[in-house]
C-alpha cells in the first residue's frame, strides 16, 4: 500500500508539472501581455514594470524561475495588486469557497442519493417521475437562473434568507442550494441507473430469501453495491465545488476564489492564472487519489496493483 501511495505521489507530481508547463506556454503565447492594455503608460514605466516582474527575460528563464518558487509553495506576486500575492488571495478566498463547496457537495450527495434510490425502488411510478423531473430541471437550468430565482423568492419576496454578503450561516443557505442543484441532479440520475442494475441482480433475491429486513437489504445489498459509480464522479464534482464558482460567487457577493481565476484571465495576470490552475489541479489530483483509495475499501474486488496476500 505504501509503495502504491508513493508511486501515485510521483505520478501526481508529473501530472502537475505537465499542467504547469502547458498552462505557462499557452499563457505566454496568446497575444498581449499584462501591461499592454494601459496604452497611456509611458514607455519607461512599462519597461520598468516588465523588468520588475522579470517579463523581459527569455521564456525559459521565466519558466524555471516560476518552477523554483513553486517548489517553495510560492505562487508569486499578483501583477495587478500592489500589496497582495497569489498566496494571499488563496488564503483569503479558499476557506470561503471550501465552506460553501463542502456544504453544497454534502447536500448534493445526500439529496441526490435519496432521489435516485426512491426513483429506482418505485420504477415507473409517480415517485420515479417526480425525482427524474427534478433531476432534469437541475441539470438543464443554468445556475445563474436558479440563483436569481432563489434570490427573487426566498430573499426578496418572502424574506426567509438574507443574501448578498458572507456573514452568518443563514447567508450560506441560498448559494449552497444554487450550487448543489447541478451535481445533485447528476448524482440522482447516476444513482437511479446504478440502483436499477443492482436491484435486478440475483443476490437481491438471495437477500430476500434469507428473510432479511427490507431496510437491511437496502443498505447492505442495494446501496452498498450501487454507490460505486457515484463515488467515481465524486472526486471531480467535489473539486469543482470547493474551488468556487465564479457565477454563484458573483451573484451572491461571496468573497471566494471562484472569481480569482476569471479576473486573472481578463487581466492577463500571469501568476494568478498559473496559481489558480495549479491550485485547482492539486486539489483535483488529491481528491482523485482519495477516491481511488476509498474504492479499494468500498469494492473488495478492486485491489491495489502489486499488493498480494
Amino acid at each position: 500500500m505504501l509503495k502504491y501511495i508513493f508511486k501515485r505521489f510521483l505520478w501526481s507530481i508529473l501530472t502537475l508539472w505537465a499542467v504547469i508547463t502547458v498552462t505557462f506556454m499557452i499563457m505566454h503565447f496568446i497575444p498581449g501581455d499584462p501591461f499592454a492594455r494601459e496604452g497611456t503608460m509611458p514607455e519607461a514605466v512599462y519597461k520598468n514594470l516588465n523588468e520588475h516582474y522579470h517579463l523581459d527575460q527569455p521564456l525559459f528563464i521565466q519558466y524555471t524561475r516560476y518552477l523554483t518558487s513553486l517548489i517553495q509553495f510560492d505562487f508569486g506576486p499578483s501583477l495587478k495588486s500592489n500589496t497582495m500575492t497569489v498566496n494571499d488571495f488563496i488564503k483569503q478566498g479558499f476557506p470561503v469557497s471550501l465552506h460553501l463547496g463542502t456544504q453544497a457537495i454534502l447536500l448534493a450527495v445526500v439529496l441526490g442519493m435519496i432521489l435516485g434510490v426512491v426513483a429506482a425502488y418505485n420504477r415507473n411510478k409517480w415517485q420515479d417521475y417526480l425525482s427524474m423531473i427534478l433531476a432534469i430541471v437541475g441539470i438543464s437550468v443554468p445556475s445563474f437562473i436558479m440563483a436569481t430565482f432563489l434570490i427573487n423568492f426566498f430573499a426578496v419576496k418572502w424574506g426567509i434568507f438574507p443574501v448578498a454578503t458572507w456573514k452568518s450561516w443563514a447567508h450560506t443557505v441560498l448559494p449552497t442550494i444554487a450550487l448543489s442543484m447541478m451535481p445533485m441532479a447528476f448524482i440522482a440520475r447516476l444513482m437511479r441507473s446504478s440502483m436499477l442494475e443492482v436491484l435486478s441482480q440475483d443476490y437481491m433475491i438471495t437477500a430476500k430469501a434469507k428473510g432479511l429486513k427490507g431496510k437491511f437489504i437496502l443498505i447492505h445489498y442495494a446501496i452498498k453495491n450501487a454507490i460505486l459509480p457515484v463515488v467515481t464522479v465524486l472526486g471531480i464534482l467535489t473539486a469543482n465545488l470547493i474551488t468556487g464558482s465564479f457565477i454563484i460567487e458573483s451573484i451572491f457577493g461571496i468573497p471566494g476564489i471562484g472569481e480569482l481565476f476569471v479576473k486573472g484571465i481578463f487581466n492577463r495576470d500571469y501568476p494568478v492564472i498559473l496559481g489558480s490552475t495549479v491550485f485547482y489541479s492539486m486539489i483535483l489530483i488529491f481528491l482523485i487519489f482519495i477516491i481511488d483509495i476509498a474504492y479499494t475499501w468500498l469494492d473488495p474486488r478492486i485491489k491495489v496493483i502489486g499488493e498480494n496476500n
Partner: peptide
C-alpha cells in the same frame, strides 16, 4: 457466481 453479495465478506 451471482447469488452472493460481491461487496460483503
Amino acid at each position: 457466481m451471482t447469488s452472493l453479495n460481491p461487496t460483503s465478506k
